[in-house]
């Protein structure tokens, strides 16, 4: 399973970086989205995968019994998702506003219109 996830992470990174290199602002934002997902998946995989277990202490027991997945990594991802979501929302509004003001979606033309 780790191998599959590693490949998915790699594909997401590759696709994201390809889109980041495009000239269109909307594609750049999609690239940001993909890279964000890739990073989250990487943290998830790097922290170790445990099948069909949750990090909950069963009733009547004092402590977690191994194997259990690492809850901290999931908390980190959750935080990263929220932050990424916020930045992405801002980037979308910014791109929309830029398009409304300059009338172009092309990053290179943006350069020329704003010396």
């Amino acid at each position: 399973m780790e191998t599959v996830l590693a490949f998915i992470t790699g594909i997401l990174f590759a696709g994201g970086i390809y889109l980041l290199l495009r000239r269109s602002m909307s594609k750049v934002i999609l690239g940001l989205l993909l890279v964000g997902h890739a990073v989250n998946l990487l943290i998830f995989t790097a922290a170790g995968l445990v099948r069909s277990r949750s990090p909950l202490i069963p009733p009547g027991s004092e402590r977690l019994s191994p194997p259990y997945p690492d809850p901290l990594a999931q908390a980190l991802i959750l935080t990263a998702i929220v932050i990424g979501f916020g930045i992405l929302a801002f980037a979308l509004v910014l791109a929309y506003r830029t398009f409304a003001v300059t009338g172009t979606d092309d990053v290179d033309e943006l350069q020329e219109s704003a010396p």
Binding site: L20, M25, V28, L32, A91, A95, T98, T102, V107, L110
Partner: peptide, 20 residues
């Protein structure tokens, strides 16, 4: 302003990449 938006877009993108 026009050039502010253009500058900000680059700034946001590159900083997002750095954060990644």
């Amino acid at each position: 302003e026009k050039n502010q938006l253009a500058g900000a877009f680059k700034y946001v993108t590159l900083n997002f990449i750095a954060s990644s």
